Simulated scan of single mutants.
Amino acid sequence: MANINLYSPRGGRIVRDDGTIVNEAEGIRDDGSQVVYSSVNDAITVTPSDSSNLSKGISKGFYLGASGNVKVDLASGTTITLNSLAAGVIHPIAVKKVHATGTTATGIVAVY
Rank of each mutant, 00 (worst) to 15 (best):
F62S: 04
V70D: 06
S55D: 06
T79Y: 03
Y37T: 12
A110G: 02
I14H: 03
G32S: 13
R10W: 14
S33C: 06
L54I: 09
I90F: 10
N23D: 05
S39Q: 13
T101E: 02
R16G: 06
T103A: 10
I4A: 11
L54F: 04
R16V: 08
V111P: 01
N41A: 09
I58A: 05
I4W: 08
V111F: 09
D30A: 15
Y7S: 04
Y37H: 07
N5E: 12
G77T: 05
V22E: 05
A100C: 07
T106Y: 02
G61Y: 02
V111N: 07
I93N: 05
A105D: 08
V70Y: 07
S84N: 15
V109Q: 01
D17R: 10
D73N: 12
T101L: 06
P9Y: 11
V89N: 13
A75M: 07
V109C: 00
S39A: 13
D17N: 12
F62A: 00
M1C: 01
S84V: 06
N23T: 11
E24V: 08
Y37S: 10
H99L: 11
T47N: 15
A25W: 01
S59M: 00
V72I: 11
T45R: 10
K97V: 04
D42C: 03
T78D: 08
L64K: 10
I58E: 06
I4K: 09
T47G: 07
D30T: 07
A75T: 02
R16P: 02
T47F: 07
G12Q: 05
A75L: 08
S33G: 07
Q34N: 05
E26I: 00
R13S: 12
H91Q: 08
R10Q: 14
L82T: 00
L6A: 12
S52H: 12
N3D: 15
T79D: 12
N23M: 02
T78I: 12
D31M: 08
G61M: 06
K56C: 00
R13A: 14
V95T: 00
D30L: 06
K71N: 03
A25R: 14
P9T: 14
V35Y: 00
T45G: 04
A86W: 08
S51C: 02
A105S: 08
S8A: 13
